[in-house]
Design a protein around this nucleic acid. Structure first.
Length: 210
DNA sequence: ACATTAAGTGATT
DNA sequence: AATCACTTAATGT
C-alpha cells in the first residue's frame, strides 16, 4: 500500500473507494513544506490543490493597502475551497497560503480538478469543504463586525495552540498584530487585559493558554 | 558590556 | 482603536 493511499485512508476516508483514490494516487504527489513556506501567493496562479495531511496551513487575505488579514487555518483532513474556485475559473488567487508548521499535503494538479468532479465522492468532498470554510469565515466576520478584538485574539491563540498541540503559543505581539491587522501596542494592551482576567499568561515570545 | 529586538506606557487623535 | 514617541526588559554576540 503506498503512502498516498495511507494518508487518504487516515485523513480523507470519504475519498476512498472506486477509481478516485487510484486517480489521486497516480496523479497526486505527496509534498512537504517547512514552517513559513508560502504555498500560494496572492495574485499567483496555483498549480495544485493541497489536501493537508500533517501540520497546518494559514490562509489569509490582503486589502488594497497591503494589510494582511488572517482568515483561518487548514488542518489535516481539510483542503482549500478557494483553490477550487480560482483554479476552475483559471483566476489568480485571492488568498495567501503559508505553512504554519512543518506541513505535509497531497498536491493535486489543478488541471485534474474539473475532471474529478465526475466522481461523486469528490464533488461531495468539495461541497463539504466549502461549507466548512464558509462557517469559519462567518465566525471571523462576526468578530470583525462587532469589533471584539480581544475575542479575536483569544480565538486566534486557541487556533494556534491547536496547530502546535500545546497550550503554549510561540508568537510575538507584532506577529499577532500583523495577522489580525491591528497594531502592536493594541495587541499588547489587550493581551495584558486577558492576562489580568486569567485567560492567558504572558512571556517573551510566548503566550500560555490557561 | 553592548547592540538588538520585544514589550510596556502615556499622550494624542 | 490607532499612532507616535519614548522607556524598560530580555536576549544574543
Amino acid at each position: 500500500m503506498n503512502e498516498i493511499k495511507e494518508r487518504l485512508a487516515t485523513y480523507f476516508p470519504d475519498l476512498l473507494g472506486t477509481d478516485l483514490a487510484d486517480a489521486i494516487q497516480k496523479q497526486g504527489r505527496l509534498e512537504n513544506a517547512e514552517s513559513g513556506n508560502v504555498l500560494i501567493e496572492i495574485g499567483g496562479f496555483t498549480r495544485f490543490m493541497p489536501l493537508v495531511t500533517k501540520g497546518a496551513i494559514k490562509v489569509g487575505r490582503e486589502d488594497e493597502n497591503g494589510n494582511e488579514v488572517f482568515l483561518y487555518f487548514l488542518y489535516p483532513g481539510q483542503s482549500c475551497a478557494m483553490t477550487v474556485q480560482c483554479c476552475m475559473a483559471n483566476m489568480p488567487s485571492e488568498i495567501r497560503a503559508v505553512a504554519e508548521d512543518d506541513t505535509e499535503f497531497i498536491a493535486i494538479p489543478t488541471e485534474l480538478l474539473s475532471d474529478f468532479m465526475k466522481y461523486p465522492q469528490w464533488s461531495n468532498f468539495i461541497l463539504t469543504t466549502y461549507n466548512q470554510r464558509f462557517s469559519e469565515l462567518l465566525r471571523t466576520i462576526d468578530g470583525l463586525v462587532f469589533h471584539n478584538l480581544d475575542e479575536r485574539i483569544l480565538d486566534y491563540l486557541k487556533s494556534k495552540a491547536k496547530v502546535s498541540g500545546s497550550s503554549v503559543v510561540k508568537a510575538t505581539h507584532q506577529e499577532i498584530a500583523f495577522d489580525l491587522n491591528s497594531s502592536r501596542e493594541v495587541i499588547s494592551r489587550l493581551l495584558k487585559q486577558l492576562e489580568k482576567r486569567g485567560d492567558i499568561q504572558l512571556g517573551r515570545n510566548k503566550i500560555s493558554l490557561t
